[in-house]
Design a protein around this nucleic acid. Structure first.
Length: 588
RNA sequence: GCCGAGGUAGCUCAGUUGGCAGAGCAUUCCCAUGGUAAGGGAAAGGUCGCGGGUUCGAUUCCCGCCCUCGGCUCCA
């Protein structure tokens, strides 16, 4: 979308937010409107509704009011006002007052706008002819939102809506929302039997079924394959630790409230680990290392636990037991670039296999705010320029985000987009000068002196739970064959063909494929339907013809036509497809 | 945690203005032995999220709790 189009959409949606404000204020005269911006795909408007409670059931009547008002809105008129005038105009609306004061303080001009019957404090940016241009909108949902986004403030009522230049675009967007709902990982996870929750186990603690576990293990194996050849070693750590570890790492102060606390019989204060880095430091700290042995690269796929606020939990994207594909590289300063490069290779290879478009962000420190960071400025500059250099050498366009660095070091973040257009931070490569210092980690250099080292935190998926949610929605449940829990389903046409079906399945299994036979007493069309619903890549039908000729009749996921080929030919082609991690099933 | 909407059979959902609880799919059994997206029939299946209260009687009304979903970043 071009800049001008985006600008026009913003104007359109911002205008729609004004219309919504006017409609609600007319319907509920005691209410006050706060902010109402244009957002991705739509707009919202916040209200202080006083004692009135509105819900989604009220949206149709608000929409009707908006449509009733709209013809009167021929043109927005803007006027600059003094702070004093603004204070008088909006004396009944504490939110507008607060904003007016704040903007005046910030040296901004105060503007009002009026479409004819509704004076509002407002920045510029509206459509020229609202009565005509604003027609294609729809209110979508009601939610609570804190004033200024701060949970210490009053909770306002937020109404979300969407608006488009034409009816066609509006309908297309609504259709997209419906489609996205069908791809929802929570819906598909149940349908494809991948994971579940239990009230007895607790909220935010997903349980993994046999099929879901296959997926998890395949993903983890893939990451390990990529790490192994780059010199990583697997290590294993307990899920508990004494408080002392986190006091020393500095996490205790910062994360105390997010930890699950445990008291031992002896009275030791302990906690379930919310991250793995402090544990890994203790593996590195077990003995002195020579520079010749550096870097040390430790990898562990393991669960961490975080005590989240109950309302924050959501499907697999926000859980309390999180599996991290974590790794930590302990290296010398002059090894940072090579190690970051190697980790970048892993992330590249991994995300390429899923057909993801990944954006890379270089998160840097803010030199104007040195207090927010640990370590010497020259260390930061050296580290940051080596990352920048690396990005340049790789020919990757990165977005530099000043002030986004962790307090302990700069990082490279990889962002992937899901089917709802949400961006998720996935892989991350973080430099850490802090932890080695706190734990006094070092190596012996060429001169026989102790040399402080750098720790790198590298995760490829980040959280397997969240990554699975992303790819379930990304693929709509139709996983590449190498990932599919069931890669081929064998359907004997009738009970006379069970023997041959078993032979086919055995042969495929012998080649390491995940195969099921559906020999239930159901019609063939029914069993084909079930297999398609389960998104099984290869449906293999066998009857008299196939048994006689030692062939299989194969139907590819999502396709109607079938191909008949010899059993050995099929087995071989399937193995090739899997080895190449092809995105969709085929017989080439 | 806060705002709003929900929780009814294994699943997706309907329903009861307070009076024996409903469908489709799935399950089990019977018939049919199938050629590529639902063959036919029968049966079984419920503490109507949990705990209190009001009532002759509560799945329904009231109170408390648990869980799920949409939000709580986008600034006039």
């Amino acid at each position: 979308m071009s800049q001008t189009n985006q600008e026009y959409l913003d104007h359109l949606r911002h205008s729609a937010a004004h219309l919504l404000a006017k409609a609600v204020l007319e319907l509920w005269p005691g209410s006050h409107n706060a902010i109402g911006p244009s957002i991705d795909n739509g707009f919202y408007q916040d209200f202080d509704m006083g004692e009135v409670k509105i819900s989604e059931a009220d949206l149709p009547q608000i929409e009707a009011k908006m449509r009733q008002l709209l013809p009167q809105w021929q043109k927005f008129t803007f006027k600059e006002v003094s702070l004093q005038a603004a204070k008088k105009l909006f004396r009944h609306n504490p939110y507008k007052l607060a904003m007016a004061e704040e903007f005046a303080k910030g040296g901004k001009k105060l503007m009002t706008n009026d479409p004819g019957n509704f004076l509002d404090l407002c920045k510029m940016g509206h459509v020229a002819n609202p009565a005509e241009e604003l027609k294609h909108f729809k209110l979508l949902s009601v939610a609570g939102a804190y004033w200024r986004g701060d949970e210490k403030n009053k909770m306002l009522t937020r109404i979300y809506g969407t608006a488009w230049p034409s009816q066609k675009e509006l309908e297309r967007y609504l259709w997209q929302l419906e489609e996205a709902k069908k791809r929802d990982h929570k819906v598909l996870g149940k349908k494809l039997d991948l994971f579940c929750f239990s009230n007895l186990v607790g909220p935010g603690l997903p349980l993994w079924t046999p099929k879901g576990t296959i997926l998890r293990n395949l993903l983890d194996d893939f990451v390990w394959e990529l790490r192994k050849v780059r010199g990583y070693e697997k290590v294993e750590i307990p899920h508990l630790t004494k408080k002392d570890l986190y006091v020393k790492s500095g996490h205790w102060d910062k994360f105390k409230n997010e930890l699950f606390h445990i008291k031992s019989q002896e009275g030791y204060e302990s906690a379930l680990k919310p991250m793995n880095c402090p544990h890994h430091t203790q593996i590195f700290a077990r003995r002195p290392f020579s520079y010749r042995e550096m870097p040390q690269r430790y990898a562990t796929t393991t669960m961490v636990y975080r005590d989240e606020q109950s309302g924050e939990l959501s499907g697999l994207t926000r859980v309390e037991s999180i599996t991290q594909d974590d790794s930590h590289v302990f290296c010398r300063e002059n090894q940072i670039k090579a190690e970051a490069n190697s980790a970048w290779d892993i992330a590249d290879a991994f995300y390429k296999a899923f057909g993801f478009k990944v954006q890379v962000r270089l998160s840097l420190h803010d030199p104007n705010n040195p207090k927010a960071y640990l370590g010497e400025p020259h260390t930061w500059h050296k580290a940051e320029s080596s990352l920048r250099e690396l990005a340049h050498e790789r020919g990757v366009k990165v977005k530099e985000a000043v002030g986004e660095a962790a307090f302990y070091g700069p990082k490279i973040d990889f962002m992937a987009s899901d089917s709802l257009g949400r961006q998720w931070q996935v892989a991350t490569i973080q430099l850490d000068f802090n932890m080695p210092e706190r734990f006094n980690l070092n190596c012996v250099n060429e001169k026989g002196r102790k040399e402080s080292i750098v720790m790198m935190h590298i995760a490829i998926m980040g959280s397997i739970e969240r990554f699975l949610a992303i790819i379930i929605e990304h693929f709509g449940g139709a996983f590449p064959t190498w990932l599919s829990p069931v890669q081929a389903k064998v359907l004997p046409i009738s009970q006379n063909h069970h023997t041959y079906a078993n032979k086919v399945a055995s042969k495929l299994k012998a080649s390491g494929l995940r195969v099921e036979i559906d020999d239930t007493n159901q019609s063939l069309p029914k069993r084909v339907k079930l297999s398609q619903e389960q998104k099984i890549p290869y449906v293999v039908v066998v009857g008299d013809r196939e048994a006689k000729e030692n062939t299989v009749s194969v139907r590819l996921r999502g396709k109607k036509d079938q191909t008949t080929l010899s059993l050995s030919d099929f087995t071989q082609k399937l193995s090739t497809q899997i080895a190449s991690k092809a995105l969709s099933p085929s017989l080439t």
